[in-house]
Design a protein around this nucleic acid. Structure first.
Lengths: 130, 130
DNA sequence: GAAGAAAATGAGAATTATTTGCATTTATTT
DNA sequence: AAATAAATGCAAATAATTCTCATTTTCTTC
């Protein structure tokens, strides 16, 4: 089924694109990046496949930055920094949210935690120096 | 200017509405909640004033939940839990993000951190038991 | 390898949350 | 009270995303 032979699927190109960038792109950014190698992929297909990958847990959404949804092929929990100047998103794989915060959350909110997202905002190096 | 005498301003009603709820409402939810006491406030005014309060740092946005922006009159940094079942947002004022994570972020990303948002997702008590 | 079934795609229309223009109302200043 | 400034309602405009449907591509089965 999945690891089939004929890989003409544009789906693969979309996933590969996400995996090869650290830009945490939006659907339009993915579409843009694919123009060079796959100029015949429509924006609708990018949206469709991103939604599908997300539903399969193969990618994650970072939520919206300036009203635009951003995606990340790295599904491992990790921290992000979002620049309010240029909307860049930076990974911080070195930093981990203490597990105690999760158990405390379940305790205080009486809920079952399934995911966690820590996002710092501010100015990236470039934007801070300009 | 601000603390003027005639407080007919619907703006006040909108802020008060946000301050009196823990629902982290969207613009439409605010508009809905105000129908009872201020049925003549238009949705555009709600949007406009929420944007204005945000620009003044008087309220904060939690970002979007299911594509809809949610607001919080509590501007103090605090953790949120978002239920993926019913889209409820719960405050967790008891929980604090260790400050070391912020300094580490600045170190690794070479950036200036100005804000931080920790959001746990999962199922709230009600949704977990159904 | 061909026929039929299933999945994926493109193009553009539809949807929906949000924003905006503009005329009117309300508040503030003089 | 007149003049100025700010806020509002309404409807139209935007813009990101989703959906419809006809067509193409891939997979299955013979």
């Amino acid at each position: 089924m999945e690891g089939s032979t004929k890989q003409f699927r544009k789906r693969n190109a979309i996933l590969a694109c996400l995996q090869q960038t650290h830009a945490h792109p939006s659907a339009e950014m993915v579409h843009e990046m694919l123009q060079k190698t796959h100029p015949d992929i429509s924006l609708a297909t990018v949206y469709r496949n991103l939604a599908w990958f997300k539903s399969q847990g193969m990618i994650q959404s970072l939520g919206t930055v300036n009203g635009i949804e951003r995606f990340d092929a790295n599904t491992a929990p990790h921290v992000h920094f979002v620049c309010t100047g240029c909307s860049a998103v930076i990974d911080l794989p070195q930093i981990a949210v203490p597990h105690s915060l999760e158990t405390d959350t379940e305790k205080y909110a009486g809920c079952r935690v399934q995911g966690c997202q820590l996002t710092f905002t501010g100015l990236c190096g470039s934007c801070a120096n300009s």
